[in-house]
């Protein structure tokens, strides 16, 4: 009896192992190209140099839209995104860039962005521009943001309501996947690796 039970257990174990191996060898489906998002834009980076779609070529990009006076979701998402980037091996890190796009050009000047982003990592690229340039780029990427009314006497404390996706772009600057700000870090790393 015990021998029979042992054999059945062994057969089931082998069967389960074969299923697991098959799952391991299954090729990961390629991330689709999102043709509705992205496109031409004209911004300036944290060094006040012009920055356009051509500057996204050659590397993967992790792009996030926000504003530096945001106390919660923006710094949290930026920190987590940079954290994922730091988890990559050094050769992989060199092929991936983190890009923060501000929709608050009034307060987020290039110099301000440069100092702010260095706290997370000096390699993070910060983009800003005129209100029109920012609005145009946000439209291209389907980003919604709205400046909320500040309390009387505290006009400089204004906040934005906004969407909070992290965009994974391929080496051609094409949008391949959107992640919610509370993304799963492992999923993001796997998707990055699939494009390297």
């Amino acid at each position: 009896m015990n021998v029979a039970v042992g054999r059945i257990t062994a057969i089931f174990t082998l069967f389960a192992l074969s299923l697991m191996l098959a799952a391991c060898s299954e090729p990961r489906p390629e991330l689709p190209i999102n043709t509705r998002l992205g496109g031409d834009f004209s911004m300036v980076d944290q060094d006040s140099k012009p920055f356009g779609p051509a500057d996204l070529q050659g590397k993967l990009s992790l792009m996030f839209f926000g504003f530096t006076q945001c106390p919660d979701i923006c710094p949290a998402t930026l920190a987590r995104t940079v954290g994922v980037w730091k988890e990559l091996t050094e050769p992989h890190r060199e092929q991936v860039q983190v890009v923060f796009v501000s929709f608050d050009p009034q307060r987020d000047t290039p110099a301000y962005l440069k100092e702010y982003l260095a706290f997370f990592d000096p390699t993070v690229i910060g983009l800003t521009g005129s209100a029109e340039q920012v609005a145009s780029m946000a439209r291209s990427y389907g980003v919604v943001y709205l400046q909320e009314d500040a309390q009387p006497g505290r006009e400089q404390d204004y906040l934005f309501s906004h969407s909070d996706f992290v965009y994974l772009l391929d080496r051609q600057g094409r949008v391949r996947k959107l992640f919610k700000s509370d993304f799963d870090g492992e999923e993001l790393i796997n998707d990055i690796r699939s494009l390297l």
């Binding site: 530096t68 919660d72 710094p75 100092e115 982003l117 706290f119 997370f120």
Partner: peptide, 12 residues
Amino acid sequence: VRAVPPNSRTTA
């Protein structure tokens, strides 16, 4: 309290 860059004006 969330640590923020030295030029930040806000945190949570």
